[in-house]
Design a protein around this nucleic acid. Structure first.
Lengths: 203, 203
DNA sequence: CGTATCCGAAACTGTTGAGTTCCGTATATA
DNA sequence: TATATACGGAACTCAACAGTTTCGGATACG
């Protein structure tokens, strides 16, 4: 981006944003560990090995930095265009449980825990969290449930909207409130003891 | 309590704690509105029409005050010894939905949202929250499910532990994350579209 | 009525952290 | 090599807040 910016050649090198990822990632780490109010800009700068002034050259305030960090967290988690297709609902749901996904998901929930109290004061932040953390997980379940309906595996009148939120909410509750790990065993239990029975499979 | 404290008559009137409820209640209100870090001791004092010094005469720190407020929040919500007994699981679950209960429950969740980020730094607080907010709700459901098993309404091998947490987690998620109201309609949907199907009733 | 005690209010202290400024250095361009 | 720019780092300002102290007034008790 640096040398391609022909629009203003006079300014020598323009701000290149090349260190944004490190900084935003450092912000997420501190957020997960300390929460929004426990996080200081100095902590983020130190962890990213950047000067505090550098952060303020890019973001006007701590709040904007945090929102940007949450927004940029989306990627790396789930590829919506390449979901498993095993032929059964259970197969699809279980196939979504990968160590990589679990790890990423737990990290997101930790960040969310840290942001919880700040959310009340910033609708913008609430929106960013919903878009980056909540919605993607529910969307996957919606798609898998819809496919199961299409192939006639489950009844067409089940409540997709509600059922697609069971796993995300139970996982959030488990991390935020119960402080217990969202591991493979937990997720399998949710699938076999709640979701599948609720759509009429098994039992 | 004042005049009954015969153990130390020499001290004139002892500290009587008569204003504790107002103060603790003010603390809960501010917590729900501002969160732990947004709450200042001055705010609590002002709302309780008390002097800040009075608060510090009773509690050694802001943290202790908050923990005490959460611990004393228990009462008023649910009477565990007097649960509805309608003869069916659905009847019992629906009978638990009372405006008073909903209101109290939503308030508790607001307080919890405000405490979320502070919880990470204080295991004592986490324990208090679990005892005062989380556990009571799950306990009710456990009892109702166990009774349904005893009367043969549902299978004996259902996962009580998991199923009793569905409504509390979905409610928490809805308040904390989705910022939508936990009303009667929502709770009925949870019962009819998730819990009952999952235990093998209906569908 | 005098005295002891607790109260609310307000002034005060010390610390922490957001946001700013400054400076010496590294780097890219020419 | 000379110049311009952004960088990391550190020192700074300023406001907010936890916790303390002080004081004048209310209230109970003898």
């Amino acid at each position: 981006m640096t040398q391609l910016d022909a629009a203003s050649p006079r300014l020598g090198r323009r701000r290149d944003h090349s260190r944004d990822p490190e900084i935003l990632n450092a912000a997420l780490e501190v957020l997960a560990e300390e929460g929004y109010d426990g996080m200081t800009v100095d902590m983020v700068a130190a962890r990213a090995k950047a000067g505090k002034a550098t952060l303020y050259r890019r973001w006007p305030s701590k709040g904007e930095l945090v929102i940007d960090a949450v927004v940029c967290m989306k990627r790396g988690d789930i590829d919506l265009g390449n979901l498993p297709d095993t032929g059964t609902l259970r197969g699809d749901l279980v196939a979504m449980i990968k160590p990589r996904t679990i790890e990423e998901s737990e990290r997101k929930l930790q960040v969310m825990a840290g942001l919880m109290s700040a959310v009340a004061r910033s609708p913008e932040l609430a929106e960013a969290i919903n878009r980056a953390i909540i919605e993607p997980r529910a969307e996957v379940n919606r798609i898998l449930l819809r496919r199961a309906i299409d192939r006639g595996e489950i009844a067409a009148d089940i409540d997709i909207e509600t059922l697609s939120m069971i796993t995300p909410s139970m996982a959030a509750y488990r991390t935020l409130v119960l402080k217990r790990p969202v591991d493979r065993e937990f997720l399998i239990t949710m699938i076999d003891n709640v979701v599948l029975p609720a759509v009429g499979l098994r039992r």
